[in-house]
Computed example of a mutant assay.
Amino acid sequence: MEPIWKRPDGSIVACTEKIKVLRENLEELRQMAQDAFEDALLMECEEGQIRAVFQEVIAGLHNPYQQS
């Protein structure tokens, strides 16, 4: 199921081009993560640890547009 993208104020992002870019970016991210996941499994890493590290990476992303 595709997410319904929302702005910080809760309104829905409805622009077709923006949604297309978001969809493409998400698919690229999924594929890159899947490839990295499979590589780690082939190198005999533990699945739970791989997932935990990936979650840490996502949680640690910095928002350069955040207003202070």
Rank of each mutant, 00 (worst) to 15 (best):
Q31E: 05
Q31W: 04
M32D: 08
M32P: 00
M32H: 14
M32R: 15
A33Y: 05
A33R: 05
A33C: 14
Q34M: 13
Q34V: 11
Q34R: 10
Q34G: 04
Q34E: 06
Q34C: 09
Q34A: 13
D35T: 14
D35M: 11
D35G: 04
D35R: 15
D35L: 12
D35I: 13
A36Y: 02
A36R: 09
A36G: 01
A36L: 12
A36T: 04
F37D: 01
F37M: 08
F37G: 01
F37W: 06
F37E: 00
F37Q: 02
E38P: 00
E38Y: 05
E38A: 04
E38V: 13
E38F: 03
E38L: 11
E38T: 10
D39T: 13
D39P: 01
D39W: 05
D39K: 10
D39C: 05
A40T: 01
A40K: 03
A40H: 02
A40R: 03
A40M: 09
L41T: 07
L41V: 13
L41E: 10
L41H: 03
L41I: 15
L41F: 04
L41R: 15
L42C: 08
L42K: 15
L42V: 06
L42F: 13
M43G: 03
E44C: 12
E44G: 01
E44H: 07
E44L: 15
E44I: 10
C45A: 13
C45S: 09
E46G: 02
E46V: 13
E46T: 06
E46F: 04
E47P: 02
E47W: 03
E47V: 09
E47I: 08
E47Q: 12
E47K: 14
G48S: 10
G48F: 03
Q49E: 10
Q49M: 14
Q49R: 13
I50A: 01
I50M: 02
I50H: 00
I50C: 01
I50Q: 00
I50F: 00
I50Y: 00
I50W: 00
R51S: 15
R51H: 12
A52F: 08
A52M: 12
A52S: 08
A52H: 09
A52G: 02
A52T: 07
A52P: 00
V53S: 02
V53K: 08
V53T: 10
V53E: 04
V53F: 04
F54I: 12
F54D: 00
F54V: 07
F54P: 01
F54Y: 03
F54H: 02
F54K: 01
Q55H: 03
Q55W: 01
Q55R: 09
Q55V: 02
Q55E: 10
E56A: 05
E56D: 09
E56T: 11
E56R: 13
E56N: 10
E56H: 05
V57S: 02
V57Y: 03
I58Y: 08
I58E: 06
I58C: 08
I58W: 06
I58R: 06
I58K: 08
I58A: 15
A59S: 14
A59F: 07
A59E: 11
A59Y: 05
G60L: 11
G60S: 12
G60E: 07
G60H: 07
G60C: 06
G60M: 11
L61T: 15
L61A: 12
L61C: 13
L61P: 01
H62M: 12
H62A: 10
H62L: 14
H62Y: 09
N63D: 15
N63A: 09
N63G: 04
N63R: 13
P64D: 07
P64K: 08
P64W: 02
P64Q: 06
P64S: 05
